[in-house]
Structure formats: structure tokens, C-alpha cells
């Protein structure tokens, strides 16, 4: 599957589409809620789009653990087929 840099840039595209955050600002250490100001509704949209884009399943209890962009990138890297 894609390397982490590719996952990051793919995720950044989704975050920009859903929440209007510039792709350059979507970096590994950023918190979705505290740094990127993304609310719980937008997180659901981002998760669904990420599932489609990367071919992963992100159950709700896993989604709750994805605090930072880096957490999401790692999860996708470890769980995509």
C-alpha cells in the first residue's frame, strides 16, 4: 500500500475538501480538533472519505483514537489492504 507521505497528502486533500484547511497545514503533529478546528461532524465525513480513498475500515471506536493527523496516517498505513 501507499507510503506514509502518499497517505498524508491524500488525507490533506480530504481535509481541505471537507473543512477548508489548506493542505500545507495538514501535518503529522496537528490535532484535528485543537489545531485544525475540525468538529465531530466533519470528522465523520473525513473518515468516510478516507475509507473510500485508502480502502480501510475505520470503526467509530478507532476514529475516537485518531487525535492527530499522524495517528490517522499510521492507522491507514497499518490497516489498508
Amino acid at each position: 500500500m501507499a507510503d506514509k507521505q502518499e497517505i498524508l497528502s491524500g488525507l490533506a486533500e480530504i481535509v481541505e475538501e471537507v473543512a477548508g484547511v489548506a493542505q500545507d497545514d495538514v501535518s503529522l503533529e496537528k490535532s484535528f480538533v485543537d489545531d485544525l478546528d475540525i468538529d465531530s461532524l466533519s470528522m465523520v465525513e473525513i473518515a468516510v472519505q478516507a475509507e473510500d480513498k485508502f480502502g480501510v475500515k475505520i470503526p467509530d471506536d478507532e476514529l475516537a483514537n485518531l487525535k492527530t493527523v499522524g495517528d490517522a496516517v499510521d492507522y491507514v498505513a497499518n490497516n489498508s489492504k
Binding site: 465531530s40 461532524l41 466533519s42 465523520v44 465525513e45 468516510v48 475509507e51
Partner: peptide, 10 residues
């Protein structure tokens, strides 16, 4: 359900 927007109700 996956494609239904979480913003549907608001």
C-alpha cells in the same frame, strides 16, 4: 448509511 452526511439533520 455510509454516504449519508452527518450534517443531514442540521
Amino acid at each position: 448509511i455510509r454516504k449519508v452526511s452527518p450534517l443531514t439533520v442540521p
